[in-house]
């Protein structure tokens, strides 16, 4: 089964327990305004150009037969209109300023690459994580990869928004879900993520009933969901769902903006939380639940 991924990050230390490798898949049906991996939203390949890295050597201009790159007043202009995503400019750029995001790979091939670091997973009680993008948007590929990993005895994490209603079907092969919970108000959820909240809660319930385990990962975005009611709702959710082992509050960072620029899109910037605000929100959660909660 072929899937579309952006990269495999080895020595991954923030996506589940121990030392891991994380597969970032491409494509996500959600359109969160603060998305930190905007190049993983679209399911098709994309040309990324990082102005910060470009040293204006002109190799890409010479290489591209479709007028993809030019310089106007010393500024690198990327014209994607006729780009056929051939990757020649990426190959020719000496400064890694160009990246073609998205490669088609067989699940078995991904497994082979993941197994390279098996000794490190074993010694650290780590394993592999499938993240993205939304892995459930490539359900069959994700399922096959998880099954292959489990057959090898690897610990598996699935980083998902819960979209698509089928998360529970994978319980058998997922040791730990990293469940991204964005917003507890249905209207705001729809507005900021582009999808309905209800099916996601259903999906969580099903996963819970099927005996799955998860870390609830809640990005706290100033001006979007930094409200006491939202934090209280998170706590209540944890009280209702024994599958939630830990509540991870994830502070907003604006690093996604640079990657949005690189694919020629715009992303809004939000402000950052102060330490006092962080302390406050954590206390709102801990006041309402015994489930462990922390900022990560």
């Amino acid at each position: 089964m072929t899937g579309k991924i952006v990269r495999i990050q080895r020595f991954s230390t923030t996506n589940g327990p121990g030392l891991r490798s994380t597969v970032f898949v491409k494509g996500c049906p959600l359109t969160c305004h603060w998305c930190h991996n905007p190049e993983m939203q679209e399911s098709k390949k994309q040309l990324m150009v990082y102005p910060e890295q470009c040293k204006a050597c002109g190799f890409c201009v010479k290489t591209c037969e479709n007028g993809g790159h030019s310089f106007v007043d010393g500024k690198h202009i990327v014209d994607r209109t006729n780009c056929v995503l051939c990757g020649k400019c990426e190959q020719m750029c000496p400064h890694s300023a160009i990246e073609l995001a998205g490669q088609d790979v067989e699940a078995s091939e991904v497994l082979e690459r993941l197994l390279r670091d098996r000794p490190f997973y074993d010694s650290s009680k780590g394993g592999i994580t499938i993240s993205g993008g939304e892995p459930l948007a490539q359900f069959n590929f994700t399922k096959e990869l998880l099954q292959l990993c489990k057959a090898e005895g690897l610990h598996t994490c699935l980083d998902t928004s819960g979209w698509g209603g089928r998360a529970a079907e994978l319980v058998e092969w997922v040791d730990l879900y990293l469940w991204d919970f964005k917003e507890s108000d249905p209207e705001r959820h729809k507005y900021y993520t582009g999808v309905e909240l209800e099916p996601i809660l259903d999906s969580l319930q099903k996963m819970n009933d099927a005996g799955g385990k998860c870390l609830l990962r809640c990005p706290i975005i100033p001006g979007v969901n930094d409200r006491d009611e939202h934090l209280s709702a998170i706590a209540e959710l944890a009280n209702r769902m024994p599958c939630i082992q830990v509540i991870d509050l994830v502070p907003y960072h604006r690093l996604g903006v640079a990657k949005a620029d690189a694919i020629g899109m715009h992303q809004d910037e939000f402000s950052s939380l102060t330490q006092e605000e962080k302390d406050h929100f954590l206390s709102v959660v801990t006041a309402k639940t015994n489930t462990q909660a922390r900022w990560i």
């Binding site: 923030t14 996604g256 640079a258 620029d261």
Partner: peptide
């Protein structure tokens, strides 16, 4: 040099200066 933050990965030198 890689920036590793929850669910995110990017090469440090690719980020704009203010970041």
């Amino acid at each position: 040099l890689c920036v590793r933050i929850v669910g995110y990965s990017e090469v440090f030198v690719r980020l704009p200066d203010y970041m």
